[in-house]
């Protein structure tokens, strides 16, 4: 899955949407409740895996799906917010449960056009 944005923050937010898209159509998720999470890692790439794994943990333990994200990264520390709602199997029809964000194809980089890419393979 891959997130693209004008800044690393935006690319991470888009990666959150891509994560949800593995499970269901993100447009079907109503942003009714907010969950805050923070993480830290030695570099931006491990930080991306941490952010996604944080979301996977919150989805699994709260039985929620998220459709809207806000990310702020400062010096390899991320403060994030995710808005979503409780999982409704009948309405969301989740295709799979995600086990974890892997380090395979893990990449956070600025592209030639100046935009940012945040990607990795997730294990389902």
């Amino acid at each position: 899955m891959r997130g693209l944005g004008a800044t690393p923050d935006q690319a991470f937010e888009q990666a959150g949407i891509a994560l949800t898209a593995v499970i269901t159509d993100p447009a079907r998720v109503s942003p009714r409740e907010m969950v805050a999470l923070s993480c830290a890692a030695p570099n931006l790439e491990l930080l991306l895996a941490d952010w996604l794994n944080g979301l996977i943990f919150e989805m699994a333990t709260r039985h929620m799906l998220f459709g809207k994200f806000d990310v702020s990264i400062r010096e390899n520390r991320l403060e994030g917010k995710a808005w979503g709602e409780p999982l409704d199997a009948a309405r969301h029809r989740p295709a799979v449960e995600i086990k974890g964000a892997t380090y395979t194809e893990l990449k956070v980089a600025q592209r030639e056009d100046g935009s940012w890419l945040a990607q990795c393979v997730v294990d389902v």
Partner: peptide, 17 residues
């Protein structure tokens, strides 16, 4: 299930670092 997934996630990071 989730327990194994979480152990894998956490130790992967610790071992990389």
């Amino acid at each position: 299930r989730g327990l194994g997934h979480q152990i894998g996630t956490e130790f992967l990071k610790r071992m990389v670092i």
